[in-house]
Structures are given as structure tokens and as C-alpha cells.
Design a protein around this nucleic acid. Structure first.
Lengths: 214, 214
DNA sequence: ACGATATGAATGAATG
DNA sequence: CATTCATTCATATCGT
């Protein structure tokens, strides 16, 4: 299904020769991964179990892949995003086993048998997404990008105890020191459509923890 | 082929208000912000530095934006959430030099790997809010959305000096014309510098047992 | 060429 | 606040 198009004639370091966007709109020319890039990405995905690389990993991956063609961090990010999503999506239809397991939305299995892709490399099932990408020398393409150790997060328990009551400390590092100094003019009280109703209306559990950012 | 078959008609009384464009095919799935709504939101975000509006603010914002199309409070909430998160994420991918110690936040290679800020609308039928309009040529008559400004916050956040505070009150022609200028100055009544005490019950997770479906 | 498919890009929604 | 999932749009490429 993937129709492995071997059309990577753009095998140059720059496959975006077509992106001569001068005044084009947004998607002037989207990133067209080269074969090498695809291969590396797949290797990372399957052989290393990389599914959702972190920012650091994305940077390193993109840096490495840049050798084979123009690429940006977002390309890597989106690639993994799409790849994972599509894998899951297709698997969903083919494997209709509702009775066997409930298949919770979350709690993805660490590299569950999802080998359906047109494999390019023999992937050893040594991926441990739960633990860490075992960057063993099994990969032919010297793919030692991801930090073999911990990606960095995991231990960084960003507890929400950051309940900062200070008005001025509108954390975000964006330099917006006017967190609460919000001047909204023009808000007419016409909102009497139902009185003041917290839009926390009847819905599923709506986490409002973020709103108490005062 | 039919990768989408679950049409969850949210039962919205509206649903077709989004047709600000001719090609809007987005059914009644998720909120599809209109151009005006996006513009206002961005104005709030950039020109006013709104990052995480409080419940009251969300209320008002959604009330105002409702003039331009169906919208709920949670939409506004999520919008700001996503916008901020993606801004940060984007920056994280592109740069974030771990070696840099001082980290001059205002010195990034613009052409190196910076994403494009075109998260506006997928429709090529607009141009006012797409990117950096030199000047808001014509406002809908309500919110004078000044120069959207680039997300280059950090140093110069809201430099809307050029744009006079034309955020006049009269809106939607409700007829009141009283000019309810709600100006949140400084702190909220419930958020004192020392003792912040959210009066609202922010239950983390509440099972949807007593909550009637929408 | 055109339609179908694959896939990059974007974003709303939700959770941790 | 970070991360992830789902859905959708847009476009490149391939098949016919």
C-alpha cells in the first residue's frame, strides 16, 4: 500500500529545489523526504522504537537527516506524528478484535506488533519504547541519534504545584509580563443569553486546573 | 478509503455558521474558527499578551466571538492552550542550543529552520490575518485588530503603539452603547498577592456520571 | 491529464 | 505546561 516510490531522484542534498516559493501561500512545497531520510526515519521508528521523539531528539534527528537533504525539525516531528497515527489508524480497521481486548485509547503498547509496513530493514523486536531506545549496533545505518539514556523527561515531574499566585509572574518566558493585566474593552454584558454561566457546562470532566492560574 | 465514518453530530443548533468560506466542509465535528474569530484571538494573544485567560476572561471572549460564529468557552480555552504550547514547541525544535549558556532569545537564524507562521486558515481566500498584515485595512467594525505582529515576543511583546486603542466598546450593535470597558487592572479580587484562593471548585477529574451529556 | 492514493502539514481536543 | 491523538486539508506522486 505504501507504494514505495523509488523516485528519490532528488537524491541530492537538497530535495526542495522546487520550493522556490516567492509569494506562494503556505504550503509552497512541502518537504519531500529522500530515500535516505525515509530509511533513517523508519529505522528509528522500527528498530529503535522511536515513536514520539522529544525536542532534543528531533533536533538531533533532523540535524543528521539534513545531510541527506533539506529538512527541518518540524518535518521530523510531523513525520513521526503521521507515521504513528497512520499505523494506528490502519491497524484499527484491519484488526477488528473488540472482544479480545478493549483496547484503551491510551496506554499504547510498547511497539506492539505493528509490523505491517513495507519493511526495509530487518527489525529486531528489541525496541523498548517503555524504556529507552536500545541503540544497539543492530542498525546498519549507524543510527545513534537518540540519547541512549533517558530522553530527559520522565523524571522531570512537572508537578502542577506551580500555583503561583503572583500576578506578575506570568510564567511562560515569553516576556509577557502582563499576565493578568488584560484590558478588554468592548465586552458588552449582552452575554445575558443565559446569565453568567461558567462555560464549564455539562460536559465531560473538564479540567479547570489551568484556569486557576491566578 | 472511508477512514472517517463516525459522524458525531454534536447536536448543535447551529452548525452552519462557519460558512464564512465557500469551501468549508468541516461538518459539525469540531469547532472551526472563523477568520474573524481567529483574528480576534490572535489580537488578544499578541497585542494583548493574553496567554492563559481566566474563566471570566474566557467567558467574555467566547461571548464576543460568538458573534462571529458558534463557539464555546472551551474552544477559547483550548485555543490559547494550543497556541501557546505550539509556539513553545516550535521554538524548541528549531533552536534550543543546549550548549548556549546565556541563551540570547532574540537571536535566531530566521532562515535556518524557523517554521512559518501560517496557522491561520486553510483557505486561500483570506489575507488579512495571514501572517503579518502591514495594517488592518478594514476591521469588522468591532475590534481593530492591529498588526498581528509576529510571534517574536520575548523582547518586544506588544508594541501596539502604532495602533491606537481603537478597541472600542460598541460591538455587535447591541444598542446599548454604554461602553462596558472592563479593565482588569492588576489583580483579581480573589487572587491576592499572598493568599491565592480560588473560589471555584476545580475538581480535577469528575466522572461523567452526574453530568448529563450535552 | 485525471483520479486515487500517500503523505506532509495543521490544528482542535484531550490527558498527564 | 508538555505530550499525544484524531481529524482534516493540501499536495506530491503514481496508476490508469
Amino acid at each position: 500500500m505504501e507504494t514505495q516510490q523509488n523516485h528519490q531522484q532528488q537524491g541530492n542534498e537538497d530535495g526542495g529545489n522546487k520550493n522556490s516559493n516567492f509569494l506562494c501561500r503556505q504550503s509552497t512545497s512541502r518537504w519531500t523526504p529522500t530515500t535516505e531520510q525515509i530509511r533513517i526515519l523508519k529505522d528509528l521508528y522500527y528498530n529503535n522504537g522511536v515513536r514520539s521523539p522529544s525536542a532534543e531528539q528531533i533536533q538531533r534527528i533532523s540535524a543528521k537527516l539534513r545531510q541527506y537533504g533539506k529538512i527541518e525539525g518540524k518535518n521530523v516531528f510531523y513525520w513521526f506524528l503521521n507515521h504513528k497515527a497512520r499505523e494506528r489508524q490502519k491497524k484499527r480497521f484491519t484488526s477488528t478484535t473488540p472482544s479480545a481486548s478493549d483496547v484503551p485509547m491510551h496506554h499504547r503498547s510498547p511497539a506492539a506488533g505493528v509490523w505491517k509496513y513495507h519493511q526495509d530493514h530487518p527489525f529486531p523486536n528489541n525496541l523498548t519504547a517503555a524504556g529507552f531506545p536500545s541503540s544497539s549496533s543492530s542498525s546498519p545505518g549507524v543510527l545513534n541519534i537518540g540519547p541512549v539514556g533517558h530522553p530527559g523527561y520522565g523524571s522531570v515531574a512537572m508537578e502542577k504545584s506551580f500555583r503561583d499566585c503572583s500576578i506578575s509572574s506570568s510564567v511562560d518566558g515569553n516576556g509577557s509580563g502582563m499576565g493578568q493585566n488584560f484590558v478588554w474593552v468592548g465586552v458588552d454584558p449582552y452575554s445575558s443569553g443565559g446569565g453568567c454561566h461558567p462555560f464549564l457546562e455539562k460536559r465531560k470532566h473538564f479540567d479547570y486546573e489551568t484556569l486557576e492560574d491566578e
